[in-house]
Amino acid sequence: MTTRPGRQQATPLFLHGLDSSIQGTKARWFQHHFPQVRMRDYDGDLNQRLIQLEEQVREYDQLILVGSSFGGLMATCFAIRHPERCRRLVLLAPALNFSEYQPPTKKVDVPTLLVMGRHDTVCPPKFVLPRAEATFRHLEVRIEDDDHMLHACFPALDWQRLLT
């Protein structure tokens, strides 16, 4: 892990969903508009993906994790294990309704933006929101007129602010 005196520059990462990749719509959007966002393809089950994430960020602190769907679940699990290494989470329709996920006994202090689509049938707000509220102490919630893919609202988020 790198540690530097003063305020360290944040390292933004995009974590794609279960059936997606860095060739997906959101990943390609980041590659075009914010090429500093790091990403890689993840595969396997949740534990295998978390091991891959741990290896990827071994040398970084001050992480900004942007997780889409299953990637949002990964970001949440990482923040529970390593809150001191996370500057911010941006969870896009996170799969907190995944059967194996249980909120921690103590809320995580990482500032977190939760963006969900009102019409999401994969990760419905009525199941995800209570788990997010039980997980994060500093949670900002945006429920948009969108579905699971968040294609309508995703590009309109203030990424300049969120990624710094």
Rank of each mutant, 00 (worst) to 15 (best):
R38I: 00
L50D: 06
L114P: 04
I80T: 09
Q31H: 06
G117T: 03
L13H: 02
C123K: 09
L63I: 00
Q8V: 11
L139P: 10
L162W: 07
P103I: 05
D109S: 15
H32D: 11
K126F: 14
F14H: 02
Y101E: 10
R4D: 08
G44M: 03
F98Y: 14
T76V: 08
L163F: 09
L139T: 08
G71P: 02
R28Y: 00
H151A: 14
V108N: 12
L91M: 04
G117C: 12
P94W: 08
K107W: 02
C77N: 11
L114Y: 04
S69A: 03
Q160W: 02
F34Q: 12
H119D: 09
E144Q: 14
E133V: 04
V108Y: 04
H32R: 15
P125H: 10
D45R: 13
W159M: 03
V115Q: 09
A75W: 10
W29P: 05
A79H: 08
A152T: 11
I80A: 09
K106Q: 15
T11Y: 09
S68H: 02
Q102K: 10
R137D: 04
C123G: 03
A132V: 01
G117F: 00
Q48N: 10
I51W: 00
S21M: 04
K107R: 15
E84I: 07
M39Y: 00
Q36H: 10
D158A: 14
D158S: 13
I22F: 04
L65I: 05
F78N: 02
G6H: 08
T11C: 07
L65E: 08
A152L: 13
A27S: 14
L46K: 07
C153T: 15
E84M: 10
H138D: 15
R137F: 00
Q23L: 12
L53E: 10
R40E: 02
T11A: 11
L46G: 00
D43Q: 15
E84Y: 02
M149P: 02
H119G: 01
R7Y: 01
E55W: 03
V108A: 13
F70M: 15
R49P: 04
M116V: 08
E59M: 01
K107V: 12
G44C: 12
D45T: 12
L163Q: 04
D61I: 01
F30V: 05
F30W: 05
V37W: 11
P83S: 13
D61M: 01
P124E: 05
E54I: 00
